[in-house]
């Protein structure tokens, strides 16, 4: 074991790393399977679930929901208790990704993808960029008073209780759950039924672009 022991001493951290990498790879290949499980994406022919189990199997949906819903809730709560802003942004990243997969479970494929592109790829990067521009040192934190924390906690817990009462106490009017909507339908509706809001949003984006550029510009003497 002499020579082997030496090698193993050197390789010890790597073993864990490789194990982590293998697990990450497995998760990475499993996650889309669960996400796609609720019926594939519109045109999925020959998908596992739609053929073998006949549409979305409740078990797959349950696993997906508890896994990614749990991740979303956990990372959202973790944001509350994190002091470092960049770590908060990374937790937000986890929440956004998990919510995107929840959209996939709800068969809103287009929305899930847009959530990742706009939120995770755009807004989040912007936020982190904002942190980098406004932070003097990576360890900079602001202490929050105990009273403030307690008041915030009480307010949000009360709000949570009220919401839970509302959610569980109401008999929601139910219909038949709808399947996925083709992107083409969504696009056509955006340019017909929702044309006015669509155009208003476009104008708003233009205004925001000009406004943000005006606000962020460097004053030149």
């Amino acid at each position: 074991m002499g020579a082997n022991g030496e090698t193993v001493t050197v390789l010890k951290p790597q073993l864990k790393l490789i194990l982590a990498a293998v697990i990450a790879c497995m998760a990475m290949t499993a996650a889309p399977r669960v996400a796609m499980a609720s019926g594939g994406g519109g045109l999925d022919e020959g998908g596992f679930v739609s053929d073998v189990l006949g549409g979305s199997h409740p078990l797959f949906e349950a696993v997906g929901f508890y896994l990614f819903g749990g991740l979303a809730a956990f990372s959202a709560i973790a944001i509350c208790f994190t002091k470092d802003v960049v770590r908060m942004a990374i937790w937000l990243f986890a929440t956004l990704g998990a919510v995107a997969i929840l959209y996939f479970l709800l068969t809103a494929y287009f929305l899930g993808v847009i959530q990742i592109i706009v939120y995770a790829g755009g807004t989040l990067v912007l936020l982190i960029f904002g942190v980098m521009l406004t932070t003097k040192s990576p360890s900079m934190q602001f202490a929050v008073s105990k009273i403030g924390l307690a008041a915030g906690g009480v307010v949000s817990l009360l709000l949570f209780a009220a919401l839970m009462g509302l959610v569980l106490g109401t008999d929601w009017q139910r219909g038949e759950p709808t399947g996925s909507i083709p992107v083409a339908t969504l696009g056509r509706d955006l340019l017909t039924t929702y044309l006015v809001p669509f155009e208003v949003i476009s104008v708003l984006l233009l205004v925001v672009m000009i406004g943000a550029a005006y606000l962020a510009r460097q004053e030149r003497e």
């Binding site: 819903g69 979303a72 809730a73 959202a76 709560i77 944001i79 509350c80 908060m88 929440t95 919510v99 929840l102 929050v144 403030g148 924390l149 008041a151 915030g152 906690g153 307010v155 949000s156 817990l157 709000l159 949570f160 919401l163 839970m164 959610v167």
Partner: peptide, 15 residues
């Protein structure tokens, strides 16, 4: 789930 995330967001905004 949405209620949990909502309240977490409110707490972050306040605190």
């Amino acid at each position: 789930l949405a209620a949990i995330i909502f309240c977490a967001g409110v707490f972050s905004m306040v605190s």
